[in-house]
């Protein structure tokens, strides 16, 4: 009886100053939930979002920023020789926030 994740988790995120704030996740799979913050398309922060509903993000390095909430989607335990999942992955579960510094 391997786990099968159904439905799609959804959450709304918003920005207040340098604080990123999330709402509750619906259809929550209960797996790892993270803030993924990208600068110029490169991930610069992957921070657990389970315990708190906000993240202070004070990075002032110039660039184009994007933030999204992601959750781990389990599709199987298989991994490649480097230990990376071959089927399971993080998927976006929120709207995206964009800003410039």
């Amino acid at each position: 009886m391997d786990q099968r994740f159904e439905g799609t988790p959804k959450a709304e995120i918003r920005q207040e100053g340098q604080k990123l704030i999330r709402g509750e996740v619906t259809n929550d799979w209960g797996s790892q939930l993270i803030w993924n913050v990208l600068r110029n398309g490169e991930s610069v922060a992957r921070v657990s979002a389970r315990a708190n509903d906000s993240l202070d993000f004070a990075d002032k390095t110039p660039g184009k920023y994007e933030a999204v909430l992601q959750m781990f989607q389990y599709e199987g335990y298989e991994k490649d020789k480097d230990g990376k999942y071959t089927k399971s992955k993080f998927v976006d579960v929120s709207n995206k926030l964009n800003w410039m510094v």
Partner: peptide, 18 residues
């Protein structure tokens, strides 16, 4: 082939939440 990745991304969060 369970690793720290399974603990971090699936098992510990699932358990903690439930």
């Amino acid at each position: 082939n369970n690793t720290y990745a399974d603990y971090e991304q699936l098992l510990c969060p699932q358990f903690d939440w439930a």
